[in-house]
């Protein structure tokens, strides 16, 4: 009897889970497997196994520069986001006049389509954009517009603009869940604001910062639309993959091999990051 009801309960759980599992296996796992198989087939063929797609990509010097560029872009954007988010969160925590407005402002890059954000930034930082007009107006010795679009620093800036809200939101919520008594305790004990920040606030919100920055990093690592339109000659892995199938004839196997490399790099990096995060929060 007991056993019967247990079985039935398991059945109910399974049937409730079913839609999610079907979705996962049908729309994620199976396509991933297709990609894996495709990456191991010779180009344009449905039979035979080969590693040539991996080898031919990884053996080029270009491969290394693409991977380094991808990491460099996403890591720099993550670090910039952390710096910016901590400052912003410390300010917004004070609940100054208008802080609600800025809280909403913080969400904008996450809500509008990334392509539009990138378009606006391209216009703003273009040679005829307001940024260069301002710089040339203020500093007379700057005679030529500063080239920002289609450069690496420009891409880092764009990435940061688009992906910092992940870090900023978790940092802010970590900061706001701090017990104000703890800061007061440090204050009474003789710690000035710098000490309080350095020894009390920062260590305590570090898990929040790291959790958010993981999201920023993942988004930046997988970023596709931004480098596609704003990257110019700098192509991170995602664009490199797309370019393979944008050719005629499309090189699906080559693209798949690159995609597998990208996925593996991301998983490896995330694992390391999570390990650091766990150790930190212990």
């Amino acid at each position: 009897m007991r056993r019967g009801s247990n079985l039935r309960s398991t059945g109910v759980t399974l049937s409730l889970l079913l839609p999610g599992l079907v979705c996962f296996f049908g729309l994620f796992f199976y396509p991933m497997m297709v990609t894996v198989v495709r990456s191991l087939r010779p180009e344009g063929s449905d039979t035979g196994w080969t590693l040539v797609n991996y080898i031919s990509f990884l053996s080029t010097t270009k491969a290394r520069s693409v991977i380094v560029l991808t990491f460099m872009l996403s890591l720099s954007a993550t670090l910039l986001s952390i710096l910016f988010s901590v400052a912003l969160a410390l300010i917004l925590r004070k609940k100054l006049g208008g802080h609600r407005f800025f809280r909403l402002t913080m969400l904008i890059p996450r809500v509008v389509p990334g392509l539009i954000g990138a378009l606006g930034l391209l216009l703003l930082f273009g040679s005829r954009g307001w940024f260069n007009l301002l710089v040339m107006g203020v500093f007379p010795f700057v005679e030529k517009p500063i080239q920002i679009n289609y450069t690496v620093p420009g891409l880092i800036l764009f990435y940061t603009w688009l992906y910092f809200p992940f870090t900023a939101l978790t940092t802010l919520s970590a900061l706001e869940s701090l017990d104000p008594g703890i800061e007061e305790a440090a204050d009474v004990a003789g710690a000035n604001k710098w000490h309080v920040l350095r020894y009390v606030i920062l260590p305590l919100i570090m898990p929040g910062i790291l959790a958010g920055s993981v999201l920023t990093f993942m988004a930046a690592f997988g970023a596709f639309s931004i480098p596609l339109i704003a990257g110019g000659n700098y192509r991170p892995l995602s664009v490199e993959i797309y370019k393979q199938i944008d050719l005629t004839p499309a090189r699906w196997s080559a693209a798949s091999a690159r995609a597998m490399i990208m996925a593996m790099l991301q998983v490896i990096f995330l694992t390391i990051y999570m390990r650091i995060l766990r150790r930190r929060s212990r």
């Binding site: 703890i182 007061e184 204050d187 004990a189 710690a191």
Partner: peptide
């Protein structure tokens, strides 16, 4: 506060 040379004990320990 930090220059007042005080010691304080809090309700929620802090």
């Amino acid at each position: 506060t930090h220059k007042r040379e005080l010691g304080m004990v809090f309700q929620n320990f802090a």
